[in-house]
Amino acid sequence: METCAYLTAFLIFSPILVIIVRALYLIYQISTTDSRLMSENSSLRTILCIGSGGHTTELLRLVKNLNFDKYQPRLYILAENDVSSEVKIHKTEQIVPNVNTKYTLGRIPRSRNVLQSFLSSIFSTIYATLFCVPLIFNFKPNVIFCNGPGTCVPICIVAFILRCLFIIDCRIVFIESICRIRTMSLTGKILQFFADIVIVQWPQLRDVCFRAKYFGRLT
């Protein structure tokens, strides 16, 4: 009887243990190596986390410089009630004269509205996170670009968990906003543990974030 209980406990907890060990191993690997990705394909499935206002403009200015042949197909994830970002995305995609590449838009609920209370923002974040799961599972990204809006935390966490479960193999590139000079944003503080590549745009920030890389101003 007792062995049976032990066996059940073992069967339940060992997968959880494996996942935790895998997560810790990934975090260790992320923070000590440059987490190289060797794709079997000739292009990378790319997710771009679009926030609002300034964040959108900043990220899209970077997108313009990406090699669209390499980073495709692209999925832009944005908040469900965000119309102005959508206009900007279509504009950016039209600037680069390339008809062969594909891009789509995916929408998730806002994880935090302006002036929302802390407690209710926890619940809406969980809700937004659950929304991300099918989106990311179906798309199976190789790279995720994000630059700081709240929406990118759920996306990156879901992607990280799916990577722990060997469902996807993807790298997260976090670019801190140009507005951040001496302190990291909350998103940056969280993502410095999960993102494979952390980029800052001011040399002062390298002292604050232990693994940030600085390549000058990007946008």
Partner: peptide, 19 residues
Amino acid sequence: PDPTIFLKYLDDVLRVKPK
């Protein structure tokens, strides 16, 4: 702004098979 060094670094870390 000059993103070329960043893009080079990105190309080095994230590699694809040549077409």
